[in-house]
C-alpha cells in the first residue's frame, strides 16, 4: 500500500551517472554516499587496516569518477565500481605485504579490547580478524565477495578475472581454513 504525503524518490545509478557525465558533479556525491559503507566494509576486511582501506576506497571513487566515460553500462555502476576497488585492494594488499605490516589488529580493535564489558565479543571479533588475515589474499577475496558481499560466482568471476571453478575452490579452502584457525584459537 502506498502511503500519502511526500516520498523520497532516490535516483537510480544510471540517472546519477548520466547527470555526472552531463557535468553535475554533485550527483557523484550521491553515488559516493550510496556505496561508501558497503565498499568500505569490503576494503576494511580485505586489507585489515582502516587507513589503508579508506585510502583504497577514496582512490577508487576518484578513479571511477575520472574513468566514468568507460563505464559501459551506467545501470551497473556499482558492479563496475566494485571491480575498481577489488583491483585497488589487490595493489594495496601486495604493497602492505611487502612492507611486512601486521594488519590484523587495527586501532579500533586495540581500543575495544580494553573494554571489559565487551571483552567476549571483541575477543571473537579479534579472532575472526586474525583468522581472516591468515588466509591467502585470493582466498580472502573470494570468501568476502561470496559470503559477506553475497555476490554470485559469475559476478565474482567478472570482478576478479578468475574462473568459477577456481573461485569455488578458493571459497571452499577459505571456509576450511577459517574453521581451522578459529579452532586453534579455541573459539569454536
Amino acid at each position: 500500500m502506498q502511503s500519502m504525503g511526500i516520498e523520497r524518490v532516490e535516483s537510480s545509478d544510471a540517472e546519477l551517472v548520466c547527470r555526472v557525465r552531463a557535468g553535475d558533479i554533485g550527483a557523484y556525491g550521491a553515488l559516493v554516499s550510496r556505496y561508501r559503507d558497503r565498499l568500505g566494509r569490503y576494503a576494511r576486511h580485505m586489507l585489515g587496516d582502516r587507513e589503508d582501506a579508506e585510502e583504497a576506497l577514496q582512490d577508487s571513487f576518484v578513479r571511477a569518477y575520472r574513468s566514468l566515460a568507460r563505464c559501459d553500462d551506467p545501470a551497473r555502476f556499482g558492479a563496475w565500481l566494485y571491480g575498481i576497488l577489488v583491483n585497488r585492494c589487490r595493489t594495496t594488499g601486495a604493497r602492505a605485504a611487502r612492507r611486512r605490516r601486521m594488519f590484523v589488529r587495527d586501532a579500533d580493535a586495540l581500543q575495544g579490547a580494553a573494554r571489559a564489558d565487551q571483552s567476549e565479543r571483541l575477543e571473537w571479533t579479534d579472532a575472526v580478524d586474525r583468522a581472516l588475515a591468515r588466509l591467502a589474499p585470493e582466498y580472502r577475496e573470494a570468501f568476502l565477495l561470496k559470503h559477506v558481499e553475497d555476490l554470485e560466482y559469475e559476478a565474482i568471476a567478472e570482478l576478479t578475472g578468475a574462473g568459477v571453478s577456481a573461485l569455488k575452490m578458493r571459497v571452499k579452502r577459505a571456509r576450511e581454513q577459517l574453521q581451522r584457525y578459529l579452532r586453534e584459537a579455541e573459539h569454536v
Binding site: D37, G40, R41, R44, W124, V128, L182, V188
Partner: peptide, 13 residues
C-alpha cells in the same frame, strides 16, 4: 558466525 560478524557495518571516516 563469521559471516554474521563480518557483515556488521564498519566505521568509515
Amino acid at each position: 558466525r563469521v559471516v554474521q560478524q563480518l557483515r556488521r557495518p564498519v566505521a568509515i571516516d
